[in-house]
Nucleic acid binder design. Structure first.
Length: 361
DNA sequence: AAGACGGGGTC
DNA sequence: GACCCAGTCTT
């Protein structure tokens, strides 16, 4: 039985027009060299909420460091985080390693071919499952991302709010009918490529579009009103104070962030969240001395950093500080010089502190 | 269903 | 400043 949203829709002609266009116009990208499921998998994780141009250099470096699924499975966690440094959403790479270890142990190092099994892997949601199954294994599984929802909302004039979790399922149901059974890989990639190159969020290039004859929104001239997407709330501000603590040999103190939550397991300079009331230097020197277990002498403010996340804004005031000793290390604290610090993965906000401090020293 | 989770590019 | 990006996990 045909899905009602495809009534009077030329399914086969649409598939052909899309796939022909994709084969002629697809970009040359490093993850399109072959269909190795591991390579496809890594690319799909990196591409989550991240643009192609941003991903390319990370992908090349990552595949050089971890060419096979086993290489990644046996790698040290600090190394995979360093390879991800600056990409954001760091749980992606920790989940990816958990998942490839699962594949090595439970699936004889072969990426599962069924949606049920592949979806059990950490970090593999409905989109990534469909992308790997269709691109690496040629299976007719939908892969619904932001591009696909935008393109299809226009082509089929679907006006559900794409910010709602439930809406993704609407698109998946249609796509099980609409996807090419002969070339699911080119179909899915074609939908995404079309969304990236032609059917863009603002001012779509309808006159260049290979499927405009099929497009209901274009026919009505309402392509700019779709998709419907509700707004999200804006980020909240947090004031922080961070400290570049220097010992007698010129090393600085860094610490590892907690295992869960924001920027989990990355390294940073010791810092505290401050509200406007408790913001005084005596207070900070004291609590800092407690943290480090030695007397800290708080120096000048040397930098201000504003860093914007999707849900938080950090306003960081950076202070220099001195310790009258060599300084003690434990599992989560290290004293490092400007060479050693390169080996640790820092969030971009604290990379700004590293750059400013060591450029000035 | 809504919030947590990064960072960068664009208008 | 707001939006968006080849989304997923947790609550």
């Amino acid at each position: 039985m045909q899905y009602t949203k495809l009534t009077d829709f030329q399914v086969e002609n649409f598939q052909t027009d899309l796939i022909e266009w994709f084969k002629e116009n697809q970009r040359t990208l490093p993850w399109r060299e072959n269909k190795d499921p591991y390579r496809v998998w890594v690319s799909e994780i990196m591409l989550q909420q991240t643009r192609v141009d941003t991903v390319i250099p990370y992908y090349l470096n990552f595949m050089r460091e971890f060419p096979t699924l086993e290489d990644l499975a046996y790698a040290e966690e600090d190394r995979i985080l360093k390879a991800w440094e600056g990409l954001g959403y760091y749980s992606r790479v920790r989940n990816l390693q958990t998942a490839v270890r699962e594949v090595v142990e439970e699936y004889d190092a072969v990426v599962p071919r069924s949606r049920v099994d592949i979806s059990k892997l950490k970090g593999v949601g409905p989109y990534t499952a469909g992308a790997i199954l269709s691109i690496a294994y040629g299976q007719p599984e939908p892969a619904v991302d932001g591009n696909v929802m935008r393109v299809l909302s226009r082509v089929l004039e679907i006006d559900e709010d794409i910010a709602k979790p439930k809406t993704r399922k609407t698109f998946e149901e249609v796509l099980y009918e609409l996807i090419s059974k002969e070339d699911p890989s080119s179909f899915n990639q074609g939908m995404m490529e079309l969304g990236a190159l032609i059917c863009t969020p603002t001012s779509p290039g309808c006159l260049l579009c290979p499927v405009r004859t099929h497009c209901r929104a274009y026919k009505k001239g309402i392509q700019d009103t779709l998709p419907i997407k509700s707004k999200k709330k804006k980020a909240k501000r947090k004031r922080m104070a961070a400290f570049v603590i220097v010992n007698e040999t010129g090393q600085v103190l860094i610490e590892k962030r907690p295992e869960t939550g924001l920027l989990a397991k990355l390294w940073q300079f010791p810092n505290v969240e401050v509200d406007s009331h408790s913001f005084n230097k005596e207070n900070m020197a004291l609590s800092l001395s407690e943290q480090v277990g030695e007397t800290i002498i708080l120096g000048d403010r040397i930098q201000k950093v504003e860093h914007v996340f999707s849900h938080i804004i950090w306003d960081i005031e950076v202070y220099q500080a001195k310790i009258e000793a060599v300084g003690i290390e434990d599992a989560t604290h290290r004293w490092v010089d400007h060479h050693q610090i390169e080996e640790f993965a820092f969030p971009v906000s604290h990379q700004k502190i590293i750059k400013h401090y060591f450029d000035g020293v």
